[in-house]
Design a protein around this nucleic acid. Structure first.
Lengths: 224, 224
DNA sequence: GTCACGCAACCCCTCAGACAAGTAGACAGG
DNA sequence: CCTGTCTACTTGTCTGAGGGGTTGCGTGAC
């Protein structure tokens, strides 16, 4: 039975209840659920609410309904997905993951970068310098520079990881800079040095510089 | 207007139509959709069908509805997920990403490991040695050992990344070992050394050993 | 005995209407 | 300027009805 106290929509609670029962094994994979009228009565809700709950789970790929046949279990669990984990994780944990990805990318970029990659790196770094006034623009252009490093590494998996991390970190960075606007004078040098290391194909130096920069970023979050 | 030909449930077609309009930019991120009655009339469908379509997109995280306020766009697109990228990527690209994640994890594990982590590391390494006969078991127990390293790092984002990479690499590793069964006598030493480095809280050594082992793995794939 | 056909029960799909519950902006009063 | 109330609008939920598809059983022919 569904709890009558209405904190979140009934359909959403019914969806959770169904998912819990599916996980529990009440309806195995490929099995058919009871009919709408039966199940709605059993749960003590209207058919509409049950149907909406089924639709919600269908959107997640757990259930599939076939007219005339019934509703069937097509997946035992919702793929939680990396994005949900990232969203729920601490900012520091995400930054640590970003350090892992980006230092390795800098390493690879040093040996794989093309002249086009170099052009993009210099261009995005210049944009970053130009946007030093507005915090949001500064964060976004900085992100573009780092994305250019990832692009120079020519590894789509690493690039995809970076793009997954960015949204979670962006808000936190903006908030941090707003609360404590650091001069970050050495920042530009660090970035410029990273470009030079990549240009000179010095993989070890690129990795070291990248790590140094990001570790400093992490320190700003752990310090508070 | 929704096409009247009924090949697929109306609610599903409405969901597609809404998603197409969202992608097209008709309702920007964070914007409110028209009221249900208005939108249903505009699309030429009943309010129930529209609501089920909204629920389907809500299940995918694209829309969020708040009673009394309206329905809002919370994502511009359905996340295709890292899994698809990993599945389509070259094995070498995935291994490179794994190197990034795992070397950093070894680094973190050296400073964060608990005694329980150490126990799990030794236990999984022993299981790995015991399973040296059967290729599949060997690969799986090896995976468990590396997963234990990730667990010792105490970073859920990195752990999630590892679990995402494993399925793609597993098949490739089994195929490789079947084709070219290497003695891998030095392998065990490398893993044992990694455990010792983690036990001794030697972060730099742990990273170095982890990198050496995985780079050798990568070489086996790039060599052919 | 076996197979094909038809039918009936069951199921999901869609619509319409009504009322409840919540939100947010307008507005008057302090 | 702030605050509380009120109202129009929005989503949430239920009910009843009819349409159309699927499945499986029973029947009859071979």
């Amino acid at each position: 039975m569904i709890s009558p106290i209405s904190q979140q929509p009934l359909a959403a609670r019914v969806a959770e209840e169904l998912l819990a029962r599916i996980r529990q094994g009440e309806w195995p994979l490929g099995h058919k659920l009871p009919g709408e009228t039966t199940l709605a009565a059993q749960l003590g809700v209207g058919r509409s609410s049950l149907r909406e709950a089924i639709r919600e789970l269908a959107g997640k790929g757990v259930l599939t309904s076939r007219q005339g046949a019934g509703v069937f279990v097509t997946a035992l669990d919702v793929e939680q997905g990396l994005e949900d984990v990232v969203r729920a994780a601490e900012v520091t944990a995400v930054i640590e993951a970003r350090i892992a990805v980006e230092t390795e990318a800098a390493h690879l970029a040093a040996s794989r970068r093309t002249s086009a990659d170099i052009r993009l790196l210099r261009k995005t770094l210049a944009a970053r310098e130009a946007a030093r006034g507005v915090i949001e623009d500064y964060v976004d252009t900085d992100t573009e520079f780092h994305r250019a490093v990832l692009a120079a590494a020519h590894n789509e998996v690493l690039s995809e990881l970076f793009d997954t991390f960015v949204p979670r970190i962006r808000q936190a960075m903006i908030a941090m800079l707003r609360a404590q606007p650091r001069p970050a004078a050495t920042d530009a040098d660090g970035h410029g040095g990273l470009i030079e290391a990549i240009v000179n194909r010095d993989a070890e130096l690129a990795r070291t510089l990248s790590r140094a920069h990001l570790t400093e970023l992490l320190t700003n979050f752990t310090a508070r």
